[in-house]
Design a protein around this nucleic acid. Structure first.
Lengths: 360, 360
DNA sequence: CGTCGCGATGTTTACGTAAACATGCCGTCC
DNA sequence: GGACGGCATGTTTACGTAAACATCGCGACG
């Protein structure tokens, strides 16, 4: 039997297809090959492959053995074609190099994997609407069932048109959009906590080193800072602006060092806070004795700054997880839910904040 | 009622199937739809879609118009099934959170996009062989033509078995493997440059804060440090080991601060250097006057450390680019080239290194 | 004792695309 | 002027899978 079988297979192969096809046969086995070896129909192989219930235990084991022997792997292209879905989530983003985006991406990939979804990355070189539109257009041809965008909503405007209509979109790290579901850190809550912490220490007001104007995240931190001060009856000092980089924080710090009544600064991220620390140190302002500094993000290095940085911890992993959860739920239930999901922040107090000099 | 209902359903089904199809038609148009509207055969649509030469200009425009009207997008699953390739590169890695891996990934994604390839991410939670093997096994079912692994080669051992044989593998950030093509930074060259820089400044020897034992990158930096010292006729001080984290650098720094003859330290990465700076500062050792510190990586923040960190710059973007180039070349030419491609490093001198006290 | 139902398995078909092959038309060359 | 070559386009087929439908055998129940 066995001999006859393999002989017939060999004959068929050499007769049926020549060269290239034969080679390919040896490379990847199809369901038909497995079926032949196991002595069942390809449909039964399919049932085993997909964990279908109604298969005799004995048959299943035969099939599994045949799969193993041939090194069978389901062809995901054929699967996707048949099922009409790819089990893949596309992530569109520019600038992977910020801690936040990267950590969010990592969490997205992990969560997606747990749900049996793969993650396809779509980098956008320049954050212009044209670039984003191009990326979305490519995504349209891409094998994805859903899209998570890690960017500002306004960059998505007019870009979505080219997306296949059944593809769901969730946006991370952006303002509250009414066209998309948004998952974001509670920027406002974190900023308020930072300001309140400094006020509680006894500082009369808090300066703010803001992120770039075009960033909604920065805008919301700034708004919350302003609101928290105003609510407490304090006068917000003039705004100082950076561009997220440590270098810009350094430049801002050189200016702030000359403001003698500046005893507390809330930097919109940890990198700028780092630059700030350096500038203040160079100008002889002791931290936290002369000036308290607080950051935002809680990057892994923050605890090793000089001095260790008090900052607002963001749970990027949770953001990523919620993005995946949201996009999958929307895919399954179809309903295009809008609105924003907020992930809480946590104040991490370290050594860069203290009561103002002369106090306590 | 039941009978009528099911009968009606049954009747409906043949028609209802059409209905469903119609609904789906409105979602995604196929080549057949475009062909019908344009009054040509689907093959002609295919030719236009793929930029085939032999199509009359007039016909082509008709087809393009029809495509636009229907919002046609090629179905990548069908395409992949027919062509036998996915135009996708899988990237397997754990721990995206290191600067290097992340930047490499970013470059891979960008380069791949330029070549018309998508990048699928496959995170591995724990860097054990079992985990990696599982990831590879999943990759086997995944829609990828090639794999780039950002990890140590020894973690790949015994895992490749489950990879489809035609899938090419390139490894980044690892030791010179004889089973895979490897692209890596010139760790040794960078480490030598760091040591020589410190010796040239007049330090009698250079201490080394090494990365974890299981890392080949760390091992190679350590080996090069040792070799450079020995070649210069110096006696290598005892090795101090960290785990890449700033915290471990801090702990190591506390110990090093007590070594009064320690005037120069080469840290295996910038994060550990950061911790080192903090520890030395806390113990009253001035940098660079009492102790010179040099790092490795040149993370964006390095220039804002206190003081700005002299370090060895790694070109992660180039590593990523070469990985993509290598994997594509191997796919096209078939030949499994082994061997290592090295990307040069560059010494960046900032403020954390100086001649030893008493010198000059 | 026939048929009904059900569990296990086989057969047919369609998913959307593109290679391979087929057709039909027109100009050219001998 | 007829065969031939080449170009534009149409027709057939296969990629590997899985849903839908078909079959087959067997135990149960009326």
């Amino acid at each position: 039997m066995d001999t006859a079988d393999s002989a017939s297979t060999g004959t068929e192969r050499s007769r049926g297809r020549k060269g290239k096809r034969a080679v390919r046969r040896t490379q990847t086995a199809s369901m038909a090959d497995v079926a032949r070896l196991a002595g069942v129909s390809s449909q039964t192989v399919s049932r085993v492959s997909n964990g279908y219930a109604g298969v005799n235990e004995e048959t299943r084991e035969q099939v599994l053995a045949a799969m193993k022997e041939l090194g069978y792997r389901p062809n995901s292209a054929a699967r996707a074609l048949k099922r009409g879905e790819f089990r893949t989530i596309g992530v569109i983003t520019f600038n992977l190099s910020t801690t936040g985006n990267m950590r969010t991406l990592e969490a997205i990939a992990t969560s997606a994997a747990q749900e049996g979804y793969a993650v396809t990355l779509l980098p956008v070189a320049v954050p212009t609407q044209d670039e984003v539109r191009g990326a979305f257009s490519r995504l349209g041809e891409l094998a994805v069932d859903a899209v998570i965008a890690i960017m500002e909503v306004h960059l998505l405007d007019a870009a979505t048109i080219s997306l296949p209509p059944h593809v769901q979109v969730v946006v991370a790290d952006s303002d509250a959009g009414d066209r998309y579901a948004v998952v974001d850190t509670d920027q406002a809550g974190g900023a308020r906590a930072a300001v309140r912490h400094l006020l509680d220490l006894g500082h009369s007001t808090v300066w703010h080193l803001a992120g770039p104007e075009e960033s909604f995240a920065a805008q919301r931190r700034t708004d919350a800072w302003h609101a928290a001060l105003t609510e407490a009856g304090r006068v917000p000092p003039p705004l100082v602006r950076g561009d997220w980089s440590a270098e810009s924080g350094y430049r801002a710090g050189l200016r702030l060092a000359d403001e003698r009544d500046c005893t507390a600064v809330f930097a919109a991220n940890d990198q700028m806070a780092l630059g700030l620390l350096r500038a203040l140190h160079e100008r002889g302002r002791k931290i936290p004795d002369d000036v308290s500094v607080i950051g935002f993000d809680d990057i892994p290095e923050a605890g090793s700054f000089l001095p260790p940085l008090t900052t607002v911890h963001q749970d990027f992993a949770e953001v990523g997880r919620l993005c995946v959860e949201g996009v999958l739920r929307r895919m399954r239930h179809g309903g295009p839910e809008h609105g924003t999901t907020l992930v809480p922040t946590k104040l991490v107090v370290r050594g860069s904040t203290a009561p103002p000099a002369g106090d306590a």
